[in-house]
């Protein structure tokens, strides 16, 4: 299974929760304790067991383009085409 991780731009996140629904691994959760500067509770990437596969479905669903997706690929090979 491919390994991956995401970075969420919490300043641009509006807390719509659509990425948490799109994520097949359930490794995105909504913050409950720290609102962003705009007053939204942003999505957070919580993946202590390394379940993220870098599938990028969260990024496809995100209306605010807050998510950057990284995937571990074998060196010397070209990256797979992005999910879309």
């Amino acid at each position: 299974m491919a390994r991956g991780r995401i970075e969420i731009n919490e300043d641009n996140c509006k807390g719509c929760t659509l990425c948490t629904i799109a994520c097949p691994q359930g490794v995105i959760v909504m913050a409950t304790d720290h609102p962003s500067a705009k007053g939204y509770y942003p999505a957070m990437f919580v993946d202590p067991e390394g379940q993220c596969t870098g599938c990028a479905l969260c990024a496809v669903a995100c209306p605010d383009v807050c998510i950057t997706v990284y995937r571990q690929v074998p060196a010397k090979t070209r990256p797979q085409e992005a999910a879309v």
């Binding site: 300043d11 990028a56 496809v60 074998p74 990256p79 999910a83």
Partner: peptide, 19 residues
């Protein structure tokens, strides 16, 4: 197998980086 991290999804260049 040596793994390296690559960006597979990022903001497109045709979209300005503004909220």
């Amino acid at each position: 197998t040596v793994l390296e991290e690559q960006v597979v999804y990022a903001r497109p260049a045709s979209l300005r980086d503004v909220p």
